[in-house]
């Protein structure tokens, strides 16, 4: 009620000054103001996300014949994805590997963010820059760096051989799922680190003092105060890291061997050598659905955890 009154008042003012009717409209409807401010973003989103997504969804129901598509609608591609073990295995493997990389990163990034938020008092910016320095290099270079580290004559193998710990280079380092997980965890670490840091930084220090005054030890204080308060950052970091890594194909292509290929590699192949775009579209859509499902399950778990903690 109060809102209507005030906007009426504004409208009346606008009319009195003889401003253009568009301004009056904006003044009257707050939603419209918001929409107008959002318009450039919405247009870009529409053109670069919604339209291609709609096209891709449509294409996923077509099928490829030679160099052409038939556009009689069919769910054949999805049926193939569900029935052929190749697709489900690679999808599950990608989800699993992305989860492992995300878990590894969040667990490793949390102490770093904690240190930065609570124990660095001077030159925070410098510390932030130092910690994020690796991310100033290209993603591809970071992946290549891991090839150099894990390779047959790489840093680890040469080091271990120099020390006399192994006689033959370890073959298992490069071209393995572990290599992909390590590389992903390193390459995407900043995406988990920064949201966690921000949420830790935001915690009101007087809350910590209060918990200490009330007799909470450092360990309990962490689990009962700091961790719950930083959960939004952890959840954001988890999503920022998990979603892109599921579909990553650069890393498995360069450091994963035959057993570490992911769903992204398969999607890329459908649009390249295999030349089956509708299938590639269907795979991409399936991947998005799977990520959404896992994300919802994760959010549900977090919600249940919070209720249980209370």
């Amino acid at each position: 009620m109060a809102l209507t009154q005030s906007s009426d008042g504004l409208g009346a003012q606008g009319a009195r000054r003889g401003t253009p009717s568009s301004r009056r409209l904006f003044a009257r409807f707050e939603n419209l103001r918001g929409l107008a401010l959002l318009a450039p973003t919405l247009v870009i989103l529409g053109v670069t996300v919604v339209v291609p997504f709609a096209l891709m969804s449509a294409m996923s129901f077509w099928s490829q014949i030679g160099f052409d598509y038939t556009d009689d609608w069919s769910v054949g591609n999805y049926a193939t994805i569900l029935s052929e073990p190749l697709y489900t295995t690679l999808l599950l493997r990608s989800l699993g590997m992305a989860m492992a990389a995300t878990l590894l990163t969040v667990v490793l990034a949390y102490p770093m963010a904690y240190f930065l938020a609570f124990h660095v008092h001077r030159n925070k910016l410098v510390w932030l820059i130092i910690i994020t320095l690796p991310f100033w290099t290209s993603y591809l270079l970071r992946v290549f760096a891991w090839r150099v580290i894990l390779g047959y004559e790489g840093v680890i193998n040469s080091g271990l051989m120099e020390l006399g710990l192994i006689a033959e280079p370890l073959q298992a380092l490069l071209y393995s799922r572990t290599a992909v997980i390590i590389t992903l965890a390193h390459a995407w670490a900043a995406f988990a680190l920064l949201p966690i840091y921000v949420s830790l930084e935001k915690i009101d220090k007087s809350v910590l003092e209060a918990s200490a005054d009330l007799g909470e030890g450092p360990v309990m204080r962490f689990f009962r105060v700091i961790l719950p308060l930083s959960m939004p950052g952890v959840i954001a970091g988890t999503f920022l890291m998990f979603i892109p890594t599921v579909g990553d194909y650069v890393t498995p292509a360069l450091v994963g061997g035959p057993n570490a290929q992911m769903i992204g590699n398969l999607v890329q192949l459908q649009f390249g050598t295999v030349n089956n775009w509708p299938m590639g579209a269907a795979l991409a859509i399936t991947m998005i659905l799977a990520i959404t499902l896992v994300g919802l399950i994760f959010l549900g778990l977090m919600w249940a955890l919070r209720r249980w903690a209370r």
Partner: peptide
């Protein structure tokens, strides 16, 4: 070979490479 053969061959080879 015709494109259909090429697609079929590549699909199958990708499956084999992935272990199926």
């Amino acid at each position: 070979q015709p494109p259909e053969w090429s697609s079929r061959m590549n699909t199958l080879y990708e499956q084999i490479k992935a272990g199926f």
